[in-house]
């Protein structure tokens, strides 16, 4: 295993939900990201995966919990003290239309991180570096002075990626980077992300609701449900022998693009996720879990090894 890069310990974050109530987006999550790996973070909408991604790079402050970067405590320090780490922790956003300032040219967009950190000595040098970055992400150099709206979604996402890799970060949080794109374009971006990782050796935290995308890109996977991690493990183990019932239901629910296999044979999860405002007691999944017992309703299951993965379940592997 590679060296530990980033570690979150017991991270929690609530948001005000009106009427004095709280939305529990992330509850007591501990997570490790190693050097050079891709950690996939999957879960359904509202499970807190985006919040967790932002907590890990301090784009959001946790209510409680600690954050370590290469062994240094980086939570609880002032924004100014954290600033040097910012350069190493970058992000790619979901919406390639909203994440680029419509009034800036491609050159200025990609130069922005370089200028903010005074990476290059002169304006010419910066432009040269911008062109090299454009080449690396596959945007033709002649588009240097164009504005974002003159590009397709896929190309905009490439520009977003160029911005993220400009500072040679150690970790990029990819927040649903391909879910706004069409399949054929989505694959181009996934290939690009893989290629960049091979050449530059950074780690990804890849947040997605799409299980097949995560299957392809991740080395390890963490499955989230309602602000908690249900199961983590190597991608192969999670997809082949999931231990947590939620992981299994989630994997079964994906429609297979094969009409020969469309007969409904698998059991489906009943109902819908409970509201993150009123979390169920005990295991957060128990209201939807067909195997739930009295213990599940009262006692929060701890994360522990189960089969080849780790699962937060009192009865891992039940079926």
């Amino acid at each position: 295993m590679n060296r530990l890069l980033l570690e979150g310990k017991n991270l929690s974050r609530d948001f005000p939900a009106g009427h004095g109530r709280k939305l529990h987006a992330v509850t007591d999550i501990s997570l490790r990201i190693y050097e050079g790996e891709t950690l996939g973070l999957v879960g359904e909408s509202g499970c807190g995966k985006s919040t967790l991604g932002r907590l890990l790079i301090r784009m959001l402050e946790p209510d409680s919990g600690k954050l370590y970067y290469r062994g240094n405590a980086v939570s609880g320090i002032s924004e100014k003290d954290f600033h040097p780490y910012r350069r190493d922790l970058q992000m790619i956003f979901q919406d390639p239309y909203a994440s680029l300032n419509p009034r800036m040219t491609v050159r200025d967009l990609i130069a922005e991180p370089l200028e903010a950190w005074h990476v290059c000595g002169s304006r010419e040098e910066t432009t040269k570096k911008v062109l090299r970055l454009m080449e690396a992400v596959g945007v033709p150099g002649e588009f240097l002075m164009r504005y974002p709206h003159q590009f397709s979604g896929g190309q905009r996402q490439r520009i977003g990626i160029a911005r993220a890799i400009a500072l040679d970060p150690a970790l990029i949080v990819c927040d649903e980077p391909v879910s706004a794109l069409d399949v054929s374009v989505q694959n181009q971006i996934l290939n690009l992300l893989n290629e960049l990782q091979k050449n530059r050796g950074m780690s990804y935290l890849f947040i997605s609701h799409d299980l097949s995308v995560v299957h392809h890109i991740a080395d390890r996977v963490a499955v989230m449900f309602l602000g908690k991690i249900m199961e983590t493990g190597y991608v192969k183990d999670i997809y082949e022998s999931p231990q947590h019932p939620y992981t299994r239901f989630l994997l079964n629910a994906v429609p297979v693009p094969d009409p020969h296999r469309r007969e409904d044979t698998v059991e489906l999860l009943k109902g819908e996720p409970p509201s993150p405002v009123d979390l169920p007691k005990g295991c957060v999944f128990h209201t939807r879990c067909p195997y739930a017992t009295e213990q599940c309703r009262n006692e929060v299951p701890a994360m522990r090894p189960a089969g080849r993965t780790e699962a937060a379940c009192h009865y891992p592997g039940v079926s």
């Binding site: 399949v183 054929s184 374009v185 694959n187 996934l190 392809h216």
Partner: peptide, 18 residues
């Protein structure tokens, strides 16, 4: 494109261009 994603090919197939 869909198939290579499911097969988990090393390099995913794409349709070039836009």
């Amino acid at each position: 494109a869909v198939g290579s994603l499911r097969r988990d090919a090393e390099v995913l197939s794409t349709i070039p261009g836009v």
